[in-house]
Design a protein around this nucleic acid. Structure first.
Ligand SMILES: [Mn+2]
Ligand SMILES: [Mn+2]
Ligand SMILES: [Mn+2]
Ligand SMILES: [Mn+2]
Lengths: 175, 175
DNA sequence: AATAAAATTTAGGCAAATCTAAAAATTAAT
DNA sequence: ATTAATTTTTAGATTTGCCTAAATTTTATT
């Protein structure tokens, strides 16, 4: 069983790996989790002992298959809860992230499954991020970055990458 | 800000105080929380330092006004989540308690308020226990113990006091 | 290739929450 | 009123997660 903190590390490494690809540095994890590199070093050794990450001292870290599975499950829970808060409880989209940071750690596989059904097996969260299915497979949303859309071509914005309240609060969600 | 553990202590003391009235013993808390009296002693001193309990060494403990308020809020959250799980996610009534033990610690007053509204400002949880309102006031349900009902008199069972899965699972909820 | 800079790890400490074993205080029984 | 039993607290350890400061290793620059 992983602790709250360990889950946050796995999620952070997973999300860093999506951009940076390959091995992730101690410093980048520290920055993302607002902690110190020393603390990260410590934790990486614990996660390596639990076979959640491949870790070679001084040369960065990557998730094992098991670690990736756990990480994806946390992401899944985070996004399902965000959608629940937004759709069912009528939170604004700038308020959901912070609460989902807590809810993503609730332990109950049945709960995730029932929440998923309750929300109608959704494919995206309120920020437009894909929600993995029960197998951990992300839906293909066929999206491209706004910066890449051709001049004078129509496009629909379906999501943003920044989830911070101050950013989200600047824009309204139309749907 | 109280920790997860501190909240559990306050809730336990509150619920013990409902039966036993007056000062609560170290041992009874230890038993309820499945921990040791030594651990409880430690914690009571911390809670006393935070003005959450009135504590006189060797002579038991009681909640301060502030401690009681926190305790009631945890109870409120616990019961609201139980009802959510039962009514909205279609959990059986024997499954909700354990998950609510986790959910009751999610920090967000807005969330509690929105959940309360979403559930229609309910007065009881799936086990028939009263849900305090936003002011911490418990609804008066006008109930009496089944053992006290007069012979040949009709009565409606609206709740049980035992929330453990093995007990609840023995009976079906009809409503 | 040697040195400087940056990144990373180790060492030593601290707070929270837990335990067991020992000491102290209270309560119950002669 | 002593003594015995029970309850409670203290002492000393352990684990987890975090920190700062120092040491080490890698990477970049002359
Ligand atoms: Mn988010
Ligand atoms: Mn989190
Ligand atoms: Mn319950
Ligand atoms: Mn709890």
């Amino acid at each position: 069983m992983l602790t709250y903190t360990e889950e946050n590390y796995l999620k952070a490494i997973f999300q860093l790996q999506e951009d940076e690809k390959g091995k992730i540095s101690t410093n980048s994890i520290a920055e993302r989790l607002s902690t110190t590199p020393a603390t990260v070093s410590d934790m990486l050794q614990k996660l390596a002992a639990k076979k959640m990450v491949n870790y070679l001292k001084y040369y960065g870290v990557s998730l094992t298959a098991g670690g990736k599975k756990k990480a994806i499950n946390v992401v899944r829970k985070h996004r399902l809860w965000e959608l629940f808060l937004y759709e069912k409880l009528e939170f604004n989209w700038d308020e959901v992230h912070e609460i989902a940071e807590q809810l993503e750690h609730i332990q109950s596989e049945t709960l995730v499954q029932k929440l998923y059904d309750f929300l109608g097996k959704p494919k995206t969260d309120p920020h437009g991020d894909p929600i993995p299915d029960e197998e951990g497979v992300f839906p293909d949303l066929n999206t491209i970055p706004l910066a890449v859309v051709a001049v004078r071509k129509d496009a629909i914005v379906i999501g943003v990458s920044d989830h911070r309240p101050d950013f989200c609060n600047t824009y309204k969600r139309l749907v």
